[in-house]
Nucleic acid binder design. Structure first.
Lengths: 93, 93
DNA sequence: ATATTTTGGTTTATAAAATAAACTTGTTTA
DNA sequence: TAAACAAGTTTATTTTATAAACCAAAATAT
């Protein structure tokens, strides 16, 4: 049996990547609202996705406030597609 | 966002349940071969699924050897269906 | 006959994740 | 100007997954 990419096979990271799939760009605050994760957890998981090259993260100051914007990279998109393929094999869907 | 049943959202447990979906009954040795898990890991995860009522486990001695046979319960099947529904929502598939 | 290996596991220990709590820095607001 | 808030980060704790060690009985080799 093929293994499920452990980077994607995590509740929160899968949620993040799924959201990014629909939206082209998303900031920290929006992701936090959508996922209902704590800031800390979200921060950690974004780092992991970023280090894997699955998402790109841009940090800037906008109107005196910090803003962290994320988007799915082609590599991330590929990984997700592969993950879905594997899942479908598992679940016969 | 709905949460993915943590009992199913685990590489090995999902593999086990997926296999049981196709086969009505399976013994420890067969599951071990198919999943390529270690005995210890398999034993632990079967216990968790069993305690959750997702699978039923029968232990017997057959021809002087122990045999552990597992099968998916209706509850387990329902949980898996729900899990799949949630995943589909996440992934838009 | 008796060591030795194999089978079919279980139990315990370790490594890795996920999550939460505490902290930081700058910014409003009372 | 002290208190509260926003947007995060860092560190600590808990939970999970995984692996290593162990066990009992049977089969095999010596």
């Amino acid at each position: 049996m093929k293994e499920l990419d452990p980077l994607l096979h995590s509740q929160l990271r899968l949620a993040i990547v799924s959201l990014l799939l629909t939206v082209e760009e998303a900031d920290f605050v929006w992701l936090k609202e959508k996922t209902e994760a704590t800031s800390g957890n979200l921060s950690v998981q974004l780092d992991k996705l970023s280090e894997a090259g699955y998402i790109s993260v841009r940090k800037e100051i906008v109107g005196k406030k910090p803003r962290t914007t994320c988007s799915l990279t082609p590599k991330g998109r590929d990984a997700l597609n592969e993950y879905v393929r594997t899942l479908k094999e598992y679940l016969h869907i």
